[in-house]
């Protein structure tokens, strides 16, 4: 964190509950061009994903969110990063990296072994791709026609092995 003496920045995370879901909805509605389903919101409340779905607080104000789900792929247990976003005025302050680090640490120490973490990035979104690459992700493929309602419809698939 860059922090000068006059600045005070406190970063913290909170688990999702029925009660703060409204904040997650509010954040998603301004961060992403997609409207998420009710099922999405029910799933991120499940106790087994508690360590992987968080609200990000900056100086006690919720400014971002991260959410994942477990998938089973070719006998591997993988973590799929569904959403991650920080409100524009709070970007480039290390919040995204901290959130990602939180999730990766949780994945590494998870009781059932997690093999890798993967995610989709819209092919127009170079900034996002660079962010994940800096954090150790590599592009594995391109998923053509991944997005149904937004263009460009293709998405990069990025992944990172969990040791």
């Amino acid at each position: 964190m860059t922090s000068t003496s006059s600045k005070q920045s406190r970063v913290s995370f909170a688990s999702l509950t029925e009660n703060n879901l409204g904040t997650v909805r509010k954040l998603n509605s301004v961060l992403f061009p997609i409207k998420y389903s009710e099922k999405f919101y029910q799933d991120i409340l499940a106790p087994e994903v508690e360590d992987f779905c968080k609200l990000v607080y900056y100086n006690d104000i919720p400014v971002g969110t991260i959410s994942c789900r477990f998938e089973n792929k070719d006998d591997q247990k993988v973590l799929y990063l569904m959403t991650m976003g920080i409100l524009a005025p709070y970007r480039s302050r290390g919040l995204g990296s901290k959130a990602l680090e939180q999730v990766l640490t949780a994945a590494a120490s998870h009781k059932s072994k997690v093999d890798k973490v993967y995610l989709h990035v819209q092919v127009s979104n170079d900034d996002a791709k660079r962010f994940y690459e800096v954090n150790g992700f590599v592009q594995s493929s391109v998923h053509e026609g991944y997005y149904k309602k937004i263009t460009p419809a293709d998405a990069w698939v990025l992944e990172k092995q969990v040791n």
Partner: peptide, 15 residues
């Protein structure tokens, strides 16, 4: 002062 991460103030201060 709060618009870039290098600025001297926090975004919350502006808020």
């Amino acid at each position: 002062a709060s618009s870039s991460p290098k600025g001297s103030e926090e975004p919350t201060t502006y808020l």
